[in-house]
Design a protein around this nucleic acid. Structure first.
Length: 827
DNA sequence: CGAGCCCGGGG
DNA sequence: GTGTACGGGCTCG
């Protein structure tokens, strides 16, 4: 008797069973029961038969029998279909084959006979999701029956065979069970060698649907501790077995970790093999699949039926773009997103402690536990965002969080393409990719500012400029140089470029939807916030939509893109340059002086006019803009400073500072944020900017002179004069011994190994000769021993001279103690 | 200055 | 898994 199952599928896989192919949908129902639903689907691709003799082709398709590693590849059936290809309707043959991997074989065979084939590299699970309209993590209903008696059924959850699976709603699974894993390994001199060195500890941290915690740290050496989560096993093998058991018992929906794709899971896999422990963690009884030994770097690790989330991948590829962090280390990312840092322990001595003084192991167990917890909290925090990307793009979370922008955009377009009956162009081959790599286009327009301190600055910028240009001008490969619109206006600066103005084309249409949906989201968020409701999910969605929309322009010019169109990318920036120039012209015509412009923003001076006049100007501009384009009021700044290029009268691009009404500094392009600057340099630059923007130039000058005096007196704390530079290779390989190399050598003399990647800290001290000979490590230094003159000329001067230059002060005026020439009025 | 190399994260 | 590599920084020629 047929039954129905409602559930949220979150992981997907397929298996070939005889002549049939089944997709396996893993997920769980609202009441928390897990289920796996199998559903048959047919693999296929498309071919352009056009001029060829149909009978010959038919005969060929019938006779095709290709021996492959996975069986004999055959064509099962075919049908004629009409699809839109790059804006044109054409007839294609949809060719069904007997198993997914037969597709590349069969299509290659046809192509060698001169038949063009399409969509032959769409992953089968992706194909299935797009064909059925199933959205990962959103509710679906399957009808069919449970598999009750199957001797080969290895499934760890009930298995249901469906004859039909239909999407029910867009609502996502909200109750997830998460488990994070983190391992500590035996690593002498920071060497990570899974073939040789054992895992010492495995940390697990879980949170279930009710928010209940689960904690465990496994180790295989006794040590005194008061940690309730520590469990000691006899050896590594037993520890691995216990890990397997715990994971199978816990049954998480998501297994997470930090760089677990390339470290924890592959390491566990290799150690399990060494110890002859089977890591059959899959819900279908299959083994943990982890990156191969040789290439751990870009590895992906997978457990069937469980979503493995490597938080690093998502943060590095997608989420981290807006984060102001130095690195994507767990410490930095957790610090930024959670406000928690890692525990501080010395891992260099862990092997020694393990061997000789295990009584000191407790802090390492706590460290391991804490790392797992951080990974889990990050995963939990980012889960909404990951789900939203997965839903908008229509592909599994596992895949989506591992994609970079170009793939993200492409897969969004591909999902929409299936909805619009559009046939996807093929990816470029090797040669055409190389050609594409060579090409480049002109970017945005930057108006060179005149150096100076300005007051009453209003900044306007175009909201999502590139995306809105693409949608408003119908930019895309389909409408490029269409036959019907040759007489219509062409792209600015590009006399022989034009786009269809009669019919909205596919690419700008699907981009336009992103922009519209984002506008709706933002409106909703505003309303909900006003009612005090939780908007996290909508904000995640809004963020996902924004990132996708902003990546379209880059995608059009990306060499690996299916919908590659360099003319489209070039047209987008050409329109942008035109719009910003036109806007500048209109502002000038209204009596506003334009002092700066960059790509999508325009800085004007109010002069004698009021803010309202500027806003009216903006409204007038907006009335003339097409489609979704819009000029927005960014902010009003009472003061702003634009400095000159080094050693020139010309204004520097992308280097300015503004102060808003509430006193907030907005600094662009100055060094204040760079890591290889001393604190004193950063501090002085910030303070000088703040003072001059408050019309206190004189004070700024005094302040710098005062700081110089203090430096010379030696009263600036050592912490403020420390310089940091990264060592990037083996010390012996350095041909030129710079100060950072000299510092590393000093560390080496003390017996501290300096491996590439180490950030060395050092101070320049007094003396004569080369700078590198005057390097000392911070803890070797007596207070005041640093070389004041070095810091004055190498840190302070470069940090502020361009700022004072705006007011007519040369470096001498600021830095020569006794120099009061000409500008003595400030003393 | 351009092409090539190495690295990211992890212990 | 119908997949194969991205982009930035540094160094050397």
């Amino acid at each position: 008797m047929p039954e129905a199952v409602k559930f949220y599928p979150y992981d997907f896989d397929y298996k070939v069973e005889g002549d049939l192919v089944y997709v396996y949908l893993y997920g769980k129902s609202e009441n928390g029961t897990r289920v796996c639903v199998k559903h048959q689907h047919k693999p296929y691709f498309f071919a352009l038969i056009a001029g060829a003799d149909k009978e010959v082709i038919t005969k060929k398709l019938k006779e095709l029998n290709l021996e492959t590693r996975d069986g004999v590849a055959k064509v099962v059936s075919w049908e004629e279909v009409e699809k839109e290809y790059l804006g044109k309707k054409k007839t294609f043959w949809k060719i069904y084959v007997n198993f997914p991997k037969a597709v590349p074989f069969i299509s290659k065979e046809l192509e060698s006979g001169g038949i063009e084939c399409y969509e032959k590299d769409i992953l089968f699970v992706h194909r299935y999701l797009r064909d059925t309209g199933i959205t990962p993590t959103a509710l679906v209903q399957a009808t069919g029956e449970y598999v009750t008696s199957n001797p080969f059924n290895q499934f760890r959850v009930p298995l249901f065979i469906a004859d039909k699976v239909t999407p029910l709603s867009k609502e996502s699974l909200s109750q997830w069970k998460l488990l994070a894993v983190d391992i500590e390994t035996y690593a002498e001199r920071k060497e990570i060698l899974p073939e040789k060195n054992p895992i010492l500890m495995i940390g697990l941290y879980g949170i279930d649907e009710q928010g209940k915690e689960f904690s465990k740290v496994l180790a295989w050496k006794e040590f005194p501790h008061e940690l309730e989560y520590v469990e000691i096993l006899a050896d590594e093998r037993e520890m691995l077995q216990r890990f397997r058991e715990l994971l199978l018992d816990y049954q998480p929906d998501i297994l997470t970790g930090y760089f677990s794709d390339g470290f924890d899971l592959p390491y566990i896999n290799i150690r399990a093999q060494k110890n002859k422990v089977r890591m059959d963690l899959g819900i279908d009884g299959s083994d943990l699949y982890a990156g191969s030994k040789a290439e751990l770097r870009e590895a992906e690790s997978r457990i069937k039926g469980i979503v493995h989330v490597d938080v690093l991948k998502f943060v590095r590829n997608i989420f981290g773009k807006n984060l102001k962090i130095d690195s994507f280390s767990l410490d930095d990312v957790a610090g930024e997103l959670l406000g928690h840092k890692k525990h501080v322990v010395n891992l260099d001595v862990l092997p020694e402690i393990w061997n000789k003084t295990p009584e000191k192991l407790a802090p390492y167990a706590a460290y391991c536990h804490h790392d797992a917890k951080l990974a889990l909290l990050l995963c939990q925090k980012l889960l909404f965002d990951m789900m939203e990307f997965s839903k908008i793009i229509g592909l599994p979370m596992f895949d989506v969080i591992r994609m970079r922008f170009s793939r993200l955009v492409e897969n969004y377009i591909l999902t929409r393409a299936m909805e619009y009956n559009v046939l996807a162009p093929n990816r470029p081959g090797g040669e055409s990719m190389d050609e594409r790599r060579e090409e480049s286009i002109e970017g945005g327009f930057v108006f060179e500012p005149t150096p100076g301190l300005y007051k009453d600055i209003v900044v306007f910028d175009f909201r999502s400029l590139y995306p809105t240009i693409i949608t408003s001008h119908n930019i895309g490969p389909e409408g490029f140089r269409c036959e019907c619109c040759q007489e219509q206006p062409h792209v600015p600066e590009k006399e022989d470029y034009w786009f269809c103005s009669r019919e909205k084309k596919f690419l700008p249409t699907v981009l336009g939807q992103l922009i519209e949906r984002r506008a709706e989201m933002k409106k909703l968020v505003k309303e909900m916030k006003a009612r005090g409701e939780n908007t996290q999910m909508l904000e995640s969605r809004s963020y996902a939509l924004k990132i996708l929309a902003n990546s379209f322009y880059g995608y059009l010019g990306f060499f690996g893109a299916r919908w590659y169109c360099l003319e489209c990318a070039a047209s987008t920036t050409a329109y942008a340059r035109n719009y910003i120039r036109t806007t500048m012209g209109k502002a000038e015509a209204k009596g506003f002086r334009v002092i700066y412009a960059d790509t999508d923003s325009c800085f004007v001076l109010l002069g004698e006019q009021k803010l309202d006049d500027a806003l009216n100007f903006m409204h007038e501009v907006n009335a003339s803009l097409p489609g979704q384009m819009e000029l927005e009021f960014e902010n009003y700044y009472p003061r702003g400073i634009f400095v000159a290029q080094k050693g020139s009268e010309k204004g520097a691009k992308k280097r300015y500072a503004l102060i808003s009404k509430d006193g907030k500094l907005k600094i662009t392009g100055f060094e204040t944020v760079r890591r290889n600057w001393s604190l004193i340099g950063k501090e002085v630059q910030q303070q000088v900017l703040r003072l001059v923007l408050n019309d206190k130039t004189e004070e700024a000058l005094q302040y710098v002179r005062e700081t110089i005096k203090e430096l010379r007196k030696g009263t600036i704390p050592i912490a403020k004069v420390i310089l940091k530079t990264q060592i990037t290779k083996d010390l012996r390989e350095y041909a030129a011994v710079g100060p950072h190399v000299a510092a590393a050598q000093r560390l080496l003399q003390r017996g501290v190994k300096v491996l590439p990647g180490t950030v060395v800290e050092y101070v320049i001290t007094k003396g004569t000769g080369l700078i590198r000979d005057r390097v000392k490590l911070p803890d070797e230094l007596k207070e005041g021993e640093y070389d004041a003159e070095y810091y004055v000329s190498h840190q302070l001067m470069p940090a502020v001279s361009s700022i004072f230059g705006v007011f007519g002060y040369g470096e001498e005026d600021v830095f020569k103690e006794s120099s009061q020439t000409g500008l003595g009025k400030f003393w």
